[in-house]
Every structure is written in structure tokens, then in C-alpha cells.
Design a binder for these strands. Structure first.
Lengths: 151, 151
DNA sequence: CGCTTATACTTAACATGTTAATAGAAAACG
DNA sequence: CGTTTTCTATTAACATGTTAAGTATAAGCG
């Protein structure tokens, strides 16, 4: 088929690429929805986490929303400017902060939650509930694999 | 469990997040390998595509390496500076270019291909060949889903 | 208590992601 | 043939990804 490099796998069989394409497929419509409201996918994740869990410190937000601290620092600044979150100092530990979502932030979530659920339902219907569950199981299992293959 | 927002799915059951985490798990070791050589994951993808397919125009590179044109433009500039690729004008269509990998670029790939394959083998062994195939099938199928859920 | 180490961000620097606008050239079309 | 449309690639502008360094505070320890 290809005389250039037979040892390289087809991109369809490359897990990193396949994950990339799948993510793009799922995120495309979500990004389109959020663009109308003026928040990014990552900002939306942060707001969702805060709405779900209540007041959190940045470290836990980063963990739950899958963001690195440097990214989160900038995102929290942006969200504060937009009036969607507030930050206050931790009462006993001056290194830490406490981040909360504002009423305005909750309203933004409320305004988009229905559409978000509609997209989820579309995915479940189009792809199949059983396949979706299998896929999620496999992805979670992959994520729990042993640390590092450097042995 | 959580009185804040019962309608929001657990992040483990959120496909976008699950895809993100899985990708990070797979890419971490690869990035570490590439960092030692001084190329990024995306630059590596471009070089791989060129090594596999030979001379290509930027549009096809973008398609095959899953990069957007603006990103690719910058990456091609970087790779040219590093002496890993060359660019020439298309003989008949002055809008287009022809990009080729240099001997130095091929050498970089050769130097890292074995380790790359070792990481692939580790993944296959740790995760299981059957599960990996199932996962790839599901991801590819997801990618082929109907265009847009806007209807 | 004073020193060392660890923790919680923050900043910096560079690369990419993402959308929109742009410039140049080819193709379509009246 | 000339105009309009489409295509290719770049640039711009802003947000995030990523690694390393910096800053301030807390915790551990002799």
C-alpha cells in the first residue's frame, strides 16, 4: 500500500489521533453553543465544577476540571472579570483561596444546561447507549492504567 | 450524594473529560520521549505523516495530522528553521506548496521509532489487545457519526 | 525559635487551539 | 474576457497547553 514507512500505524489505528478526532467530534457542538454565550469550553468546565461542588480552592478546581494550574490561574482571572465567580482568601491558610460561583454564573449555566443535555441525548441516541457506556468504561479503565511505562 | 446540581453527570461519565484524561494518559510518555529530542507532539505528527506519505501540500498534512491550518503554518515554519523539512512552490498552482521531510528529519524519526513502538507495545500489553481494538473501533465509529446535532 | 522543606498559587516563555480576517491565485461563469 | 467565487495559505488576536522558575506561606524538625 505504502512503500514509505510500513512500520507506522494507520492514523485510524493510532490511539492518540483517534482520541483527538473523537474529542473534536463531541466538543464541536458544545463549543458552538458556548461561543454564543461568550465562554470557552474550559471556562464552562470550571463553572460546572463550582456549580456542582460549591466553593472550592483552585487546586481542587484544577483537578476536577482537568486543567493545569497555570491555565486555571488565567481562567479564574477571566471569570472574575466577567463577574461569573468570586475569590476570597482562605480564613486560616493565606496561601489558599476560596472560589465561588456568582448568581450570574449560575444563571449562565441554567441558560445552557438544557441545550447541553440535548446534545448529550443526541450523542446517546446516535451512537447508542450501550456503546457509549462501553466506551466510557474503556476510557476510564485506560486512565487507571499503571503510572508510567518507563521500566 | 451532592445537593448542588444533581443534573450534572459525574466527570467520569462525561465523554469530553474522559477523552481528555485518556489522551493525557497515552500522550504523557510520548511527550516525555519527544521532549528529549526537542520536538513537540504536533511536530512529531507532521514529520510522521511526511515520512509515511512522502511530499505533501500543507492542506493534506493538516488533514492527516489533525491540525488546523493556522497551527500548521507555524509548525512548518518551526520545522523549516530546525532543518527537518523543506518547502518548494507547486509547479503549476502558485497557491500551493510542496513539503518534504529532510534526511535530518528522517533521522529524527528513526532515532525515536523504536521507543515509540515500545510505548505502543506497553499500552497493548497493559491494557489488553482486545480492549485496545474495541476502543479504537468505538472511537472511529464515533468519529463517523452524522455531522451536526443541530436539527 | 530558626532553618529546611513542602505547598499553593503565580509568572514567564514558548507552542498550539480557535475563530475571523486577509492576500493571492485558480476556477467558475456570464 | 472580465467579474465573481472558491481555494490555499498566512496573519491577527485571544485563550489554553506545557514546562520551568518564582513568591509567599505553612509545616516539619532539630
Amino acid at each position: 500500500m505504502d512503500s514509505h514507512n510500513p512500520s507506522a500505524p494507520d492514523t485510524n489505528r493510532s490511539l492518540p489521533i483517534a482520541l483527538l478526532r473523537a474529542r473534536e467530534k463531541v466538543m464541536g457542538p458544545i463549543r458552538a453553543m458556548l461561543a454564543d454565550v461568550g465562554v470557552t469550553e474550559q471556562q464552562w468546565r470550571v463553572l460546572r465544577v463550582l456549580a456542582e461542588r460549591g466553593t472550592l480552592d483552585p487546586t481542587e478546581i484544577a483537578d476536577r476540571s482537568c486543567l493545569l494550574m497555570p491555565s486555571l490561574t488565567r481562567i479564574l482571572q477571566t471569570l472574575t472579570t466577567k463577574g461569573l465567580i468570586t475569590r476570597e482568601a482562605h480564613p486560616t491558610d493565606k496561601r489558599r483561596q476560596l472560589v465561588s460561583i456568582t448568581a450570574e454564573g449560575r444563571q449562565l449555566i441554567a441558560d445552557n444546561l438544557k441545550e447541553s443535555q440535548r446534545l448529550n441525548a443526541w450523542l446517546r441516541d446516535s451512537f447508542g447507549a450501550d456503546k457509549l457506556d462501553t466506551l466510557l468504561d474503556l476510557l476510564n479503565e485506560l486512565d487507571r492504567l499503571d503510572r508510567d511505562p518507563r521500566g
